[in-house]
């Protein structure tokens, strides 16, 4: 089985994340990390490999030069190889363009399964995996709380708005996983050493037949403003009267 995992590098949620004046992700403002949910996607793939050594895992990302760090981490965790889709023309790509680039990179590589996160922490769009499935012409199962691969098919529990659904589809398929997917393992020292020798294929727009991207036709940010930071208000230490002081506050503010 050959699995592609869609890894995305994002501004670290632990940092003070910023937008540029043009409303784009300010990559310089915060530490960049592989999005936690895409590491869980990788963990889902690695567990298949733990059970069956013949499983091959390719970590795939579309992102600037710096995104190689996220790919190296994926390799050190256990992915076999990586694919980096990088081009100046991809800067500012919207969800549809991102999906087209990813689908173009995945086409022809004979993947049985593509595993993604359910939504990214920077954009929270949550549509790229379904778009990739549509562009590849394969089923999409997501967001999944759990996934099982049985020979030629995949089953899983999908989290819907008001419950869950049990799904099945033939492979090849694209799936996305939720935070219910197992937490990612840490890279081991040996993994970090061998990662340096693992292959990273680098593809640009021309090689992906994506040289005609026109970002201005897609989703464009028209305005962006920062909300003033919140400030701390009154703070009391409970001396036995905190409950009644809180009630006095809430009723003075007409909240109860």
């Amino acid at each position: 089985m050959k699995i592609a995992v869609l890894i995305k590098q994002v501004p670290d949620t632990w940092d003070d994340r910023k937008l540029t004046s043009g409303g784009c992700v300010d990559r310089a403002a915060s530490e960049r990390v592989a999005d936690e949910i895409t590491e869980r996607a990788l963990e889902t793939a690695l567990r298949q490999k733990d059970a069956d050594k013949s499983v091959e895992i390719v970590a795939v990302t579309m992102g600037p030069g710096s995104a190689t760090e996220a790919l190296r981490k994926a390799l050190s965790m256990g992915a076999d190889s990586a694919m980096h889709l990088v081009d100046d023309g991809f800067a500012g790509a919207d969800a549809l363009t991102t999906a087209r680039v990813l689908a173009s990179g995945l086409t022809g590589a004979d993947f049985d399964v593509v595993i993604a996160g359910n939504e990214s922490t920077d954009g929270r769009g949550g549509v790229v995996p379904a778009m990739v499935a549509e562009l590849l012409g394969v089923p999409f199962l997501g967001p999944l709380n759990s996934a099982h691969f049985t020979g030629a098919s995949v089953t899983g529990e999908r989290q819907s708005a008001d419950g869950t659904q049990a799904l099945v589809a033939q492979l090849p398929a694209v799936i996305s996983v939720t935070e219910r997917a197992p937490e990612a393992r840490f890279p081991k020292f040996k993994g970090i050493m061998t990662a340096k020798r693992k292959p990273v294929a680098v593809c640009d727009a021309a090689s992906l037949r994506m040289a005609d991207i026109r970002n201005a036709d897609g989703n464009v940010v028209l305005a962006s403003r920062k909300r003033p930071a919140r400030t701390a208000g009154r703070k009391i230490v409970d001396d036995g009267n905190a409950a009644s002081q809180l009630i006095a506050y809430l009723s003075a503010e007409n909240l109860i």
């Binding site: 549809l96 769009g125 949550g126 379904a130 562009l135």
Partner: peptide, 25 residues
């Protein structure tokens, strides 16, 4: 569409199928 799992998949697939851009969330 809403931003539920169903809404996101419908909009994502529809945008990819018809080649139209998305405005999300």
């Amino acid at each position: 569409a809403s931003n539920s799992a169903d809404g996101r998949e419908a909009i994502g697939r529809l945008a990819a199928r018809t080649g139209n851009p998305v405005l999300l969330e």
